[in-house]
C-alpha cells in the first residue's frame, strides 16, 4: 500500500530534481564525485541514505525494485529499505535479479549478469578513494583535479613490498576511463571485474558525505594494479555447499564450536535459482539424507 501522507517515493519534487541533476552530471563525468545537498532521511546516515535518495530519484511507478545487503534479499536492512519503497512508492518488489529494473545494493554486485534497462544503485559509506591516505576534502579535491594519484600507487606498492600482494580486499580502487580514481563502495574485489563494460547503469549514492557518482553502461573500469602484480579477483577456495557453484562469491558460516565451517553463495537469489534448477552442493539436504 502506498502511504499517501508522503509524496511518490518520499522525496519532494524539488529534492528529486536536485538529485536528478547531480546524477546526470555524474553520468557525464564518469567516476567524478558530484556534490549534492543530501537530505535527512527517515533512516540513519550510514544505513543507505545516499542509495535511498538516488533510488527515490530514479523510481517510476512501473519499476520493479530489488534491494540486497551483502548479496541477500532477506537481511534486515534490505528488508527495511524495500519496505520503505513499498510504502512510499507503491512499486513492485522482487528478489529475482532478472525481474528487477532497479536494484539497490550494499556491498555486492549480483552474480547474474545485469542487462540494459537495469539500474544498479550502490550505497556508499566513504566515496573518496583517497580518504584513508589524506583525510582532508580540500586536499583530495585538488588531487582529483590534478589527476595526482601517485599517493595511491605508493600505498599499493608498499603493500606489495610488505606482504607480497596488495592487501586491499574490498572497496578496491578503480580507474574510470583513464581519468578518475573511484571507490567502488565496499564490494569485495571479486566483484570489481563486473564494474566495467556493464550494460546496466550504475549509480553510487553517499548520503552523509553528500556525493553522487556514476558509471554509464560499457564504461572502461580498471582495478588499479602493477604490471608485475596484476589485479586478481579472489574468493574463498570452495564451492557453495548448497548449490555447488564453483564461481560465486561465498559467505563463510560457522556451524559449530569445533571449527565446523560451510560456504554458501552470498547472493541468495542466485543460489536459490540454482537449487531450484536442480543443482546440489556438499551439504544439500538431499545429499545428507
Amino acid at each position: 500500500m502506498t502511504d499517501h501522507a508522503y509524496n511518490f517515493a518520499y522525496l519532494d519534487e524539488a529534492t528529486k530534481r536536485m538529485i536528478r541533476r547531480a546524477i546526470l552530471k555524474g553520468i557525464a563525468v564518469p567516476g567524478y564525485q558530484v556534490p549534492f545537498a543530501s537530505r535527512e532521511m527517515p533512516m540513519p546516515y550510514g544505513w543507505g541514505t545516499g542509495g535511498v535518495q538516488v533510488t527515490a530519484a530514479c523510481l517510476t511507478p512501473e519499476d520493479t525494485l530489488k534491494v540486497i545487503d551483502q548479496g541477500a534479499d532477506d537481511t534486515t536492512n534490505a528488508v527495511s529499505i524495500r519496505k520503505f519503497f513499498e510504502r512510499t512508492g507503491g512499486v513492485e518488489t522482487t528478489t529475482h535479479t532478472s525481474e528487477a529494473s532497479v536494484i539497490q545494493t550494499r556491498h555486492r554486485i549480483p552474480e547474474e549478469p545485469l542487462r540494459e534497462g537495469q539500474i544498479l544503485v550502490y550505497q556508499v559509506p566513504i566515496p573518496e578513494p583517497l580518504r584513508f591516505l589524506e583525510p582532508r576534502e580540500s586536499e583530495t579535491r585538488k588531487m582529483h583535479a590534478l589527476e595526482e594519484y601517485g599517493l595511491m600507487h605508493v600505498k599499493l606498492y608498499e603493500d606489495i613490498a610488505r606482504h607480497g600482494e596488495i592487501s586491499t580486499s574490498y572497496a578496491y580502487p578503480v580507474n574510470v576511463e583513464g581519468r578518475y580514481v573511484m571507490d567502488p563502495s565496499p564490494i569485495p574485489k571479486f566483484d570489481n571485474p563486473k564494474l566495467g563494460g556493464n550494460p546496466a547503469i550504475q549509480l553510487f549514492g553517499a548520503g552523509r558525505e553528500q556525493r553522487i557518482y556514476a558509471l554509464p553502461p560499457f564504461t572502461e573500469v580498471v582495478s588499479l594494479d602493477f604490471e608485475d602484480h596484476p589485479f586478481q579477483a579472489s574468493k574463498a577456495d570452495h564451492d557453495c555447499d548448497l548449490c555447488g557453484c564453483a564461481t560465486s562469491y561465498l559467505d563463510e558460516v560457522i556451524t559449530d564450536d569445533r571449527g565446523g565451517r560451510m560456504f554458501v553463495c552470498s547472493d541468495t537469489d542466485f543460489c536459490e535459482s540454482r537449487r531450484s534448477a536442480g543443482h546440489r552442493g556438499r551439504l544439500s539436504p538431499e545429499e545428507m539424507a
Partner: peptide, 23 residues
C-alpha cells in the same frame, strides 16, 4: 546525526567485506 548514523552503521552486516579480509 551524521556521526551517530555512521558510527552505528558498523553493527550492520559486513560479512561480505569481512569474508574478503578473512581470505
Amino acid at each position: 546525526i551524521q556521526a551517530t548514523g555512521f558510527l552505528e552503521h558498523i553493527k550492520l552486516p559486513h560479512y561480505v567485506d569481512f569474508q574478503s579480509e578473512l581470505e
